[in-house]
Design a binder for these strands. Structure first.
Lengths: 162, 162
DNA sequence: AGCTCTTGCTTGGTAATTCCAAGGTAGCAA
DNA sequence: TTGCTACCTTGGAATTACCAAGCAAGAGCT
């Protein structure tokens, strides 16, 4: 598993910003057009360039986004060779990439709630041990679910003035 | 509270896509540059144009994003008047907007984990009833926390053929 | 060897989006 | 009437995204 650091990503991507806000930092890699949809496809088991292409992303952007996602440690290039075929590379989720799932789930739940299609959710999240549906929630340190309306944003140790 | 529907948003925003994927639909409004950072500021209690400007968003984009967010029902325009001042409008989170918090929390937690600054998290999430920290987790229908590594993506009732 | 096919990208030109600096407007106070 | 402030517009340059076409490397076929 690659060691991914903020400075490392900034240096490699030549991004000038140095935001103290982790949302802003996350969005620098995940907030570009198509990035999260590519990660979504990776969660669906897609690994190859041609498979990712099916979602409609232009090929030049796909190449560029795959590079960024590999750079950020979300995807890893893995060589493979099918019998009688040439060696190729595929893109697989790393543990870092697997931890993006809550972001996808949060967007998914919000969209299903407030931008419904009338056909029901296209994707659901399940516990693979028993196939029962799960959903995102805020929990306290004891693992008890907390009413989201009671949850608020507070300044942490890394906050700057203002 | 405004009634926000997918078709309503699509019609109002003249967006041609009609994705079955709720992630893609959410990203049409929340995935534009600055949108989520503006919502983040709203959670920090910012309400006015000049306050939002401080995060560095160009004014023309800010005006445009505020309009989109109001259109999507995430923010609401509220007239106000300070003594001896003219009447103005401010932008406040609606219940729809408050439900975007898990998206911000998910991005925040991922960024703090994998793109750390070395100064600790700039923001934390707390239960306002007792000020204890909370975090996002997948829970099953009984409210029990599920190991995220065991959670997977499945096709739901609204999924199209592949 | 030569030809074709597929996958995984580049490249070149155009369209859309974002950025930046400047200006405009409405009301209030002097 | 002349500022002043908050909230935007506007024009134009820079960046980003899109689209069609092409290219390179290896495998299979003849």
């Amino acid at each position: 598993m690659p060691s991914v650091t903020y400075d490392g990503v900034m240096k490699a991507m030549a991004i000038p910003t140095n935001s103290r806000c982790s949302i802003a930092r996350s969005l620098e890699v995940l907030g570009q057009k198509w990035s999260l949809l590519i990660v979504r496809e990776a969660f669906r088991g897609r690994t190859r360039f041609a498979e990712f292409q099916k979602i409609g992303v232009p090929t030049d952007l796909l190449a560029s986004r795959l590079e960024s996602l590999v750079e950020a440690g979300i995807l890893a290039r893995r060589p493979y060779r099918e019998p009688g075929q040439r060696a190729r590379v595929e893109y697989v989720l790393t543990p870092v990439g697997e931890d993006v799932l809550p972001v996808l789930a949060a967007l998914s739940e919000w969209g299903d709630e407030y931008l419904p299609t009338g056909h029901g959710p296209a994707t659901i999240y399940v516990d693979t041990t028993d196939d029962r549906p799960v959903h995102l929630a805020f929990v306290d340190e004891d693992g008890h679910v907390v009413d989201p309306a009671k949850v608020a944003y507070r300044r942490g140790p890394g906050a700057l003035e203002d």
